[in-house]
Amino acid sequence: MDDVVLQTVTLMLLPFIQTYGIYIMVNGHLTPGGGFAGGAVLGISLILYALTFHVDEAAKVYPRRKAEALESLGALVFIFIGLLGVLGGAAFLTNNTSFLSGQAGTLLGGGFILPVTVAVGLKVASTVVTLFFHLLEEEKR
């Protein structure tokens, strides 16, 4: 595991992978991609880090408690944004396209779509990481 070449290459690759993941996530409503794909890429980058260094190292960067909290938070944000529609007098999950006051077809143009995508993406990323870490830490008997 403690291969210097591997670790160096991983450290060099990580920023690119993560930037790519965030790009997929944030630009999901303009180009192919979205919260699920972007979140998965982000999660995989942390798994890569954990595999080349050690799970404990990765747990220091991204503590498990925080990951679990983020899972709940991502889903709750979704519900909360949905409730904004009810407060506006319409049905649950009604989108208000002037929510972020952007032009249609630009980054901020989709109303609540950007926040929802980011919330879902972060949730997916932390879910993936938590799943992997917990399964990995099971002892073998």
């Binding site: 909290a69 709940s72 938070l73 889903a75 709750l76 519900i79 409730l83 649950f92």
Partner: peptide, 17 residues
Amino acid sequence: PVFVIISCLGLAFALPV
């Protein structure tokens, strides 16, 4: 009806925290 569903979901999401 939708409140009944999402209140269950919401509490489920919040309980572990």
